[in-house]
Design a protein around this nucleic acid. Structure first.
Lengths: 193, 193
DNA sequence: GAATTCTCGACCGTTTTCTTCGAAAATTTG
DNA sequence: CAAATTTTCGAAGAAAACGGTCGAGAATTC
């Protein structure tokens, strides 16, 4: 009884690994059960469906992403580094998460509107973070930003643009290169000369 | 008619990408068809079964591996570099190929003895290559090898040992580190002092 | 315009897959 | 220890997915 919540978490972590590798549809309950070394039916004692597990996994993963991002920007001082760290960690994490999306956009997007909810929430949070970074950068006279609100939106749009190939093509290997290029442009348009 | 062989190749390349990502079982004919932008039944005009496609893919991939290996050892001069290149390219390729094996060793190994045949053939070829590298190294007085035959076998055994975790564990991230360590040991036991 | 090559949707039989259920372990409680 | 509760599991079902077939019809070649 004391370990029940703990075991639910173990299920999330374990099945999360499989989901991230194969996506929602291609991951079977048998696989999850085997990975947990337990009978398949036992899982239904903790979660009532495959979808419920998936939901919990995505939520968990989203929280990890949030955490990674905040520690990434806290780990450096200068606004430029903060921005660079944020962008890199974000895109790296999305590369990992892209499998979840590929899983969903197969045909079933009807039932998975909870993902859109998470997404919307994180869009707002991201905007706030970006705005803060930009604002502090402007205060420190490192960035040349008059309206951090609008600029944050522009940056976010760019980042979303980077996500697109992650959905469609399976592997665009030059993503790191592209990131550097975009950061370059971003900074040279932003930094005080 | 002129493009038929060409199209067969396109099928191999495309489905090869999917196989390498999801393995044999999790790859569906519908997916392959969708990726090729063609009706599922049309594929059966070119190949008569999923297994036949898979067989062609593995053969194709094996040839690419052979090519990569020969160019890798031709690209450098010194025996030490040749050996190092060979080992690295081989292990990198096997990491990519490991999905095929994971696909097969689910439960169905009965029907896939053609893989064992390829494997055996490449074992022999690999032995020949290793023997040659060692032999030339010894001739150039860089390696201290008296019997290149036996030493080649020893090296091959080590490389096979490295494959094992690729089968069982999905991701052993420190494989590159391990490779360096093994090469270190190998060279320090081989190089003339 | 006939013959051949190629594509495709509809469909079939089988297998896979998610989920349920009831009963048996295992554990806790009285 | 025995009753009560919690946790595990094998068997089984209902539905979906899957590999593969077939015949008809485009598209191309002759």
């Amino acid at each position: 009884m004391v370990n029940k919540e703990e075991f639910r978490k173990k299920i999330i972590v374990t099945s999360g690994q499989i989901f991230s590798r194969y996506g929602f549809k291609k991951t079977t309950m048998d696989e999850i059960a085997r990975a947990l070394k337990m009978g398949k039916s036992s899982i239904y004692y903790y979660y009532k469906s495959k979808e419920e597990i998936f939901e919990a996994v995505v939520l968990h993963e989203a929280n990890i992403l949030r955490n990674d991002l905040t520690t990434a920007i806290k780990s450096v001082e200068s606004p430029g580094d903060k921005m660079r760290n944020y962008v890199f960690v974000r895109m790296k994490s999305f590369e990992k998460l892209s499998n979840y999306y590929n899983a969903i956009f197969d045909k079933n997007l009807d039932h998975f509107d909870f993902i859109e909810a998470i997404r919307a929430k994180y869009d707002r949070e991201e905007l706030a973070i970006l705005r803060l970074i930009l604002y502090h950068g402007a205060r420190k006279k490192v960035f040349n930003v008059t309206n951090s609100e609008y600029t944050a939106l522009a940056v976010q749009t760019t980042l979303k643009g980077l996500e697109v190939p992650l959905f469609w093509k399976k592997r665009e290997l030059n993503i790191e290169e592209r990131l550097n290029g975009i950061l370059d442009v971003l900074f040279n348009g932003i930094l005080k000369k």
